[in-house]
Design a binder for these strands. Sequence first.
DNA 1: CGCGACCGTCGAACCGGTTCGATGAATTCG
DNA 2: CGAATTCATCGAACCGGTTCGACGGTCGCG
Lengths: 342, 342
Amino acid sequence: MATIGDVAREAGVSRSTASYALSGKRPISEEVRRRVLAAAEALAYTPNAGARALATAQTKVLGLLAQFHEDEFAPAMMQYILGVTNTARDLGYDTLLVTEADGVRALRRVTDSRMVDGVVLMNIAEDDARLPILRAAPQPGALVGLPGDCSGLDVFDLDFEEAGRVMVDHLHRLGHRELILISQPEHVVERGGAYVWRLRDAALERARTLGLTLHAVYGESRQPAVGRLLHGLLDAYPAATGLLINNEAAAAALPSVTYERGLRVPGDLSVIGRYSAEFAATFSLPYSFIESAPDRLGSMAVRQLVRRVESTSARKEPFVVRFISPELADRGSTASPRPHTP
Amino acid sequence: MATIGDVAREAGVSRSTASYALSGKRPISEEVRRRVLAAAEALAYTPNAGARALATAQTKVLGLLAQFHEDEFAPAMMQYILGVTNTARDLGYDTLLVTEADGVRALRRVTDSRMVDGVVLMNIAEDDARLPILRAAPQPGALVGLPGDCSGLDVFDLDFEEAGRVMVDHLHRLGHRELILISQPEHVVERGGAYVWRLRDAALERARTLGLTLHAVYGESRQPAVGRLLHGLLDAYPAATGLLINNEAAAAALPSVTYERGLRVPGDLSVIGRYSAEFAATFSLPYSFIESAPDRLGSMAVRQLVRRVESTSARKEPFVVRFISPELADRGSTASPRPHTP
DNA sequence: CGCGACCGTCGAACCGGTTCGATGAATTCG
DNA sequence: CGAATTCATCGAACCGGTTCGACGGTCGCG
């Protein structure tokens, strides 16, 4: 492969002149610039990434640390990842995807060795062991997901508390008095997945304020367990007229459950979900839902991260915690409840 | 951050001695080795990846090039990616995930700049424009998916032709005489997704040999179009007793379609799918299916790639085209057809 | 006792870029 | 017409590792 020395020789100039001609960081005569560019073209010159990283202390690579747990819904992660990689590329960065189970070790490795200019962390736990490492690292970091302590980092997440309130308010306004909320499995909470109880607690709180009954349960992440659970809930709370779903697997399983029970949506049961538009489209879920916007979140995190990476002044700005406000996409799956339950 | 110079000074030796003590590439006295290791520990020394890449011409990073098209089933890709990243890490490599739409440019960039030691290509088209670039690149490459011309590259794929034959044979053995095969959408084929017609043609061929009727149609990738299509097919071919599905979205939509039509599986209709076990579990698909083993394919590709990267002798071995042979996971969704169609 | 072999360590060069200060030629001004 | 200024280019140093050849000290052997 051609080096900048080869280009310089071909153009009949020194290495430094070739470098300046290519970067434009110093004035170079039109004549020489043309010769250098022609030589670079002819030799198919591409700068060596390692050498450039060494000289400039910049790799033009971002780290994306994701963790995949047994009982989570892995396909949903794909959209976050695409949001990150596509936005990064638009801004001139490549993405190192690290899925190592030991997130702390992985983060240490990529930051200490200076493989990346910045890091996006996903699957944030309430008390995430990676955060102290990231705060101490020389590279800036951004989180997709809200931890207990946001200090020293930029944080992006859906406003899950508001999402819980929006769901409850919406059904309250329609006249519902008894609701069921099905969340992610309890394992997710135990691992520190705070978004689960953020939505749940806010929904419970709002239900209490409004004088509604809300049965909040943890779900399952797989069929057929989640289908059985749904049947069980509808048996256990026959007076409930509204169902709130913060659990992709449950949302995907619901259509066959209502079908089997002969329930009409929204006639017999009003339903609101929380998932991405992409997920809704792929499985043609017929429910009104709160859009979780994974691609937007990934994209926002990268934009802010790159700002900090590229500007010393931006690096001194105060850290942000930015919530996407939940938007209810109305698919007509909610209505006023029947006067009497049969 | 500490450099190897800092470590050397702390240990009271030269930089080269420190390097040899850490790498073990030359004999070093026990005493000095201890001092160097202690110094490295104390200073939390981690080699600078860029500097090492420059010196050794090795980055310990693999490129993973994937392309995401509108009408493909994106979530399925996640499992291939995890197969690659996890195996790569086990072998000491990180993974650069590139999802750029312009695959040719992306591949040129990562290989020319020497960001990666090797490349895994996914979503291989019959006549893939990236292949000539990869063949000419200094790094070895591996494909997940079968192109028209495999020369100069290691190729890994499910044996889709055998899969088509296995499906047909299985139902033929049970006594079926008229089958429907629903494939991926036609766009996938037009883009060069050869696996679609590889399965389809082999199935048609085998059906002809056995004297069966096989209605082969291209499907849709989304609801509700795919649900309508399924209804339409069952209306159009009322005598068909077996359904073969090479289309994730169709498989996911089928349960509600059979439910709505009051069809029993396998009593009224025998069904065989082709998807991953993970997909089957997530959506609790009750059908016998041919396991497409995305994680195994990704893993195999990486292992072979790393072999070539790390050994000059391996680099001279002939290239391999390795097929995973289709395994039918029996979920009891096939049976002998009813004597008469009603 | 002296010579060669061997072992452990060091200095210097190299990988391929970027960047700083210096240099020489052309231009401007008094 | 000579001094001051400007402009384009060059040489050298540097980033942080690895690696080769050389060197000095110990040891074994004749």
